[in-house]
Design a protein around this nucleic acid. Sequence first.
DNA 1: CAGTATCCAGTTGGATACTG
DNA 2: CAGTATCCAACTGGATACTG
Lengths: 130, 130
Amino acid sequence: MNEAAENSPEWSDIGTQVTRLVREIIARVADKWTMPIIEALHEEPNARFNQLQRAVDGISQKVLTQSLRQLESEGLVERTAYAETPPRVEYKLTPLGESLGEAFCGVWIWAEKHCQQIEASRAAFQEKRK
Amino acid sequence: MNEAAENSPEWSDIGTQVTRLVREIIARVADKWTMPIIEALHEEPNARFNQLQRAVDGISQKVLTQSLRQLESEGLVERTAYAETPPRVEYKLTPLGESLGEAFCGVWIWAEKHCQQIEASRAAFQEKRK
DNA sequence: CAGTATCCAGTTGGATACTG
DNA sequence: CAGTATCCAACTGGATACTG
């Protein structure tokens, strides 16, 4: 039995009820950068902008700004600007943001457990295609 | 307490161990179409190509083909072609594919539970910006 | 039916320069 | 420091036409 499903309703039940809105939300939060940012903010609460950019690894300033604004608009991240010079801005997860991280935990565990197998599959598929 | 975290290790523990490969896998499977396709295949095992395209709602033939090839290469989907005319090709989830669906269950539940709140947040954010 | 091939418009995102 | 603004190259993905 799979540990991620033990205390969840059968996911087929969920699937049949799903609305367009839910799908849109999932597609949104499951993009390239959302989880890395949420992870970084979980690791370092009240992180500042440049600190976050270093933590996220590979994200550009532009995309980090965009992502943070979106996460803020969705209530997943809270932004606090202090009126100082030089300016200081801190970001932290809201409880909703933390709960998304927890919800994603199952996927993370799945990926850790099976990433070797997936890599092997890809390699085998390439071989077969030759 | 959040139901998704009840029987998982603390996700901060996971985060610190995460490798580049795991992140890449997550970014891959968490794209726009992977979950809708896996959901459709879970609902209708042994679905045929056109059946799948109708089920997934909005996906183009090209992208469905690409996605299925990728899922196949990763060992999440099994493709069976029957040597008939007209050709018949059936797709189904592998056990690995099923397990990904189960792992994603937590995110699905999260999205269902909070989508109203997120919509409200977005609206409020728009208002504030005016 | 189950694709492949091609064209092309729209979006994404990096690099760079500039600002309060 | 924490962004905003702009330009532009690359990738994504839809529409269409064609094929075994």
